[in-house]
Amino acid sequence: MAIFKFKNFMGWFSSLFKKKKNLKLGLYGPPNGGKTTLANRICLDWLGEEMGSVSNIEHETREINVKERIQIKKKGKALSFNLVDTPGIATKIDYEDFLKHKMSKTEAKARAKEATKGVIEAIKWLDNMDAVVVVLDSTVNPYSQVNITIIGNLAARNIPVLLVANKIDLKKSDVKKIASAFPQYKIVGISAQRGDNIEEFYDELFKLVK
């Protein structure tokens, strides 16, 4: 009888800590899809501060950035998580691409090296994720090797995924094309910069980690 009670107590004790664990929510996707812009939107909405810098130049985010203990509250429910903003995933990083942005050769090579290291780290961090939001630029053709690689890695790890079709405020936005490319996933069209449809995004986050 005492052993039974002890087991029950240990089960309750373990479950208590599991409930208190902060989920790790990763933002993944190709460069310039708007991951950091979305991270900033989330942090501004719920913490009152931004998370990172953004730029029109690819690979602005070259290191893993983590913002801890974000709590979203909607309709009497609360969702707590650590937000992980990752460097853009790319299959090829060429320093010459950065020269177009008036960087010196030394700066371009350094950025390419940092970006490559960031991609490797982002992939390693996948094993730590409880759920992932894949942020795609809805003005860009989704049928790319990078997107297929990202989705394939997530599927192989059985990580819950929500697809975000970002930049719906732009004329070339085509959310339906992304939906056709990845019909197995829920897709939410948003403008992370303007906040368009962000409430639906938050609703889907609750469903993602239920």
Rank of each mutant, 00 (worst) to 15 (best):
121 E>V: 14
45 D>A: 15
152 G>F: 02
150 I>K: 06
147 N>H: 05
198 I>M: 10
206 F>H: 12
23 L>K: 08
45 D>C: 07
63 E>N: 13
203 D>Y: 04
69 R>K: 14
70 I>M: 00
209 V>W: 00
67 K>P: 03
38 L>G: 00
79 L>I: 05
203 D>A: 06
193 Q>V: 09
62 R>M: 01
196 D>P: 09
39 A>R: 03
153 N>K: 14
210 K>N: 12
110 A>D: 11
162 L>C: 06
154 L>N: 02
47 L>W: 06
114 E>F: 06
180 S>N: 15
159 I>T: 09
17 F>Y: 13
85 D>S: 14
138 S>G: 09
58 E>D: 11
154 L>R: 08
180 S>M: 12
139 T>R: 15
3 I>C: 15
116 T>Q: 09
49 E>F: 04
164 V>S: 00
136 L>C: 08
147 N>Y: 03
91 T>S: 14
152 G>Q: 03
84 V>A: 05
147 N>I: 06
164 V>D: 03
126 L>V: 12
210 K>P: 10
106 T>D: 10
113 K>F: 14
44 L>Y: 14
196 D>F: 11
41 R>K: 10
111 R>D: 04
35 K>D: 01
120 I>N: 15
27 L>T: 01
172 K>D: 14
56 N>R: 07
192 A>F: 02
203 D>N: 15
164 V>I: 15
53 S>A: 11
194 R>P: 01
15 S>W: 12
132 V>A: 04
44 L>M: 15
134 V>S: 02
39 A>T: 08
29 G>R: 01
136 L>Q: 03
26 G>K: 03
30 P>Q: 07
68 E>L: 05
69 R>Y: 13
35 K>I: 00
76 G>Y: 06
84 V>F: 08
69 R>I: 04
99 L>W: 03
150 I>D: 00
160 P>I: 03
123 I>F: 03
12 W>L: 13
134 V>C: 01
137 D>I: 08
49 E>C: 08
161 V>N: 00
182 F>S: 00
101 H>N: 13
71 Q>I: 15
175 V>H: 00
141 N>I: 14
56 N>M: 12
8 N>W: 07
182 F>V: 12
13 F>A: 15
100 K>T: 05
107 E>G: 05
209 V>G: 04
19 K>Q: 15
206 F>Y: 13
129 M>L: 09
125 W>R: 15
130 D>R: 08
112 A>K: 07
141 N>F: 08
129 M>W: 00
145 Q>H: 13
114 E>S: 06
131 A>R: 01
24 K>S: 11
134 V>I: 09
94 D>K: 15
47 L>V: 04
138 S>T: 10
18 K>N: 15
174 D>I: 07
93 I>W: 01
179 A>W: 03
176 K>V: 10
165 A>G: 04
45 D>Y: 07
91 T>H: 09
164 V>G: 00
98 F>C: 07
184 Q>R: 14
